[in-house]
Design a protein around this nucleic acid. Structure first.
Lengths: 213, 213, 213, 213
DNA sequence: GATGAATGAGGATTCATTCAT
DNA sequence: GATGAATGAATCCTCATTCAT
């Protein structure tokens, strides 16, 4: 693997583990057994490392989450899993978002762009559900449902981190997040939709014990 | 005002404005035109200042938000306002929660205790709504509704801060938060409840332009 | 007791316990439950407190240790005890002497004057021993014997403190100091003197177990 | 010279000159015209600098002072010189020993280990003297002689520093220390030993005027 | 005599970043 | 590409001392 990529990965790892403010550039270098000078050869500064990590997040968002027209139950399941796993992989960001963004105007803009994408993705998805007769809601309701979903998705991991201090977060926590999302959507589902939701729910209930690798 | 209180207020002000990690004890002292020594005369360290501020938050939570049995529309309105204003006054915390808590074990515990209170308050409130026939939901639904509400309430301010970077947050943002809460509750309301919600909604829609003092 | 005296005693206590550099004027005040302002009402500064304590030491040296012409075994015993107890009571000084004196010229002079007294006392004592036929030594030998004794006496307590870190110093340590002094003197004793020394030695050997109050 | 070594030497110099408590890490850095950051690049903290200096002292003790079986007068002379010069080079330690050790548990242990070495060295030396018929003393006498010697050697420099305040310490002071040691040993010498001692004494008497480089 | 809030210079230490090699 | 020594501003905090009451 290229040094540049190793730095991004190592930094991400440490940021998630200890929180970005507690990870110095020297920590990162030491963690990878490279020199600080080398780190700064590949990145102008710490900000840029975070920026690059964020780009990884954004492109994952773009590539893996552009919603399709139609989802089988299995696909939907995988989709929801993937979203929460994404949040989990970049959880350090959501632990400090206002602070990180306030330091870096460029990132702030990137973040807003990413938000747009997320919002569109969610809306498209909801729309497609409505069209397939799974969901029944007015325009305004759809909007605020989308907002609530964004809130739940982005806050879930940080929120959980804070609830159970030292505890290693397990897959079960991520799954609970999915269940929370389902619970938010449920009141707006049609009979058919409700069935689909319940299928998903029972699936996750079954896997609530598993640990996160 | 006592110096100790001035420190707490000044610190809160700066924390909210610039983010806790960007505010040094010397900044606080300078902001109040007192010496750093004086600041440390009243507080052992920065942690203790945050702790004291948090205690203010907790006691507000305890004193002003123990829910009553029955609410008139006006009361409910005031109640929701007050909650979001509380979040707004202590928004610095929610901007960095995982980081702040990880540094201070004692605070972590206090936080969990405060969470308990919040959760109980919300549950009591929802329960009373159900009993007055405003809400209709099963036990599990009530639980996850409560969770969503907690999430929306605690994340809203931070979330909004991040959406609109430099922009001063206005009362309208807080009001939008209330509307978001109402939207989350709405699907679970009875006909009577739905009416109440719509009254509230129209009230907030009217005030959405106002600025925050 | 007068506040001024309480301060001196409290300070002495803390100095001995924790070492002078680790005791702040606020510690002393808190220890006595008085205000720092009050402490500074009675003493211009920390230096002056040390000075005053030192005066206590000097006057003890002057009053209780001006040697008499003739000593019974019991008296000699009491005398030696008293000297080492004096060292013990003011042990904080000897733990940091060069540093303490370098900060305070006036004290430095007082110290030299006290040294003079000690030296004279020791010489007078040795002289009287020689005259009573207990000791046999030339002038030069007496001088260097006196020097060695001063060294042993003043260094003993500090030296022991350092040997056994946390250990509370007991009377036995002080007694060992006396035995060390006797061992230094012994080679210069006459037959008669040797007998006296051995009497004293056996006395201290018997009490080596006791603890210091 | 390596920066790390320059720091150790510069610190040693300043510690000896002004006393360890009066020398800040910034003083040391300024004295060497390096940045404080650089100093902390090489040492984690002030304690570690002292530790490293102490290691130098210990290794000198180990390497240069393991006693041989037999000493010519010249060798003995050089040996005694060297010991006092060692004390002189690390005199800052003995000026504050209890305080320095109480702050640093690890150093305390190192110190006790070093003490052991010193004690063994002295005992071996005395033993060899006895075997060559220079010394005549019983087991108990040897023990307390060794103790007195340790006391005299370790206290001498500090003791002298305190006697003559501002005065630069000269070689003569160190030589007087050697003479003091000789005076302590003398009463236990045989005729042959006494001769050896007197040779040494006259040697040092001749050099008492010289200044220390 | 006594209080206790207030001062401010100074201390140890950190860390993003640079730069000669 | 890489090293690692070096920088220096900034951080949190201490403590002898002062002063209004």
């Amino acid at each position: 693997m290229k040094t540049r990529d190793r730095i991004m990965l190592g930094a991400l790892e440490l940021f998630n583990e200890r929180g970005e403010p507690n990870v110095t550039t020297n920590h990162i270098a030491a963690h990878l057994s490279i020199s600080p000078g080398n780190l700064y050869y590949h990145f102008r500064n710490k900000e840029q490392i975070i920026d690059a990590i964020f780009d990884g997040y954004t492109s994952a968002l773009k590539n893996s989450f552009s919603p399709k027209d139609r989802y089988s139950s299995e696909e939907l399941l995988a989709y929801l899993d993937a979203i929460f796993l994404l949040m989990w992989r970049y959880r350090f960001m959501y632990a400090n978002l206002p602070d990180i963004l306030s330091r870096d105007e460029q990132l702030q803009e990137k973040y807003l762009a990413a938000q747009e994408i997320s919002h569109r993705n969610i809306m498209t998805l909801l729309e497609s559900f409505r069209e397939s007769g799974l969901l029944s809601a007015g325009v305004k309701e759809m909007q605020s449902l989308a907002n609530t979903l964004k809130l739940v998705i982005t806050s879930w991991v940080a929120f959980q981190t804070v609830q159970a201090p030292g505890a290693k977060i397990t897959k079960s926590v991520v799954y609970q997040g999915v269940l929370q999302v389902l619970a938010v959507v449920k009141p707006f589902t049609t009979g058919l939709g409700k069935q689909r939701v319940m299928e998903l729910e029972s699936h996750y209930d079954d896997h609530l014990q598993e640990d996160l690798v």
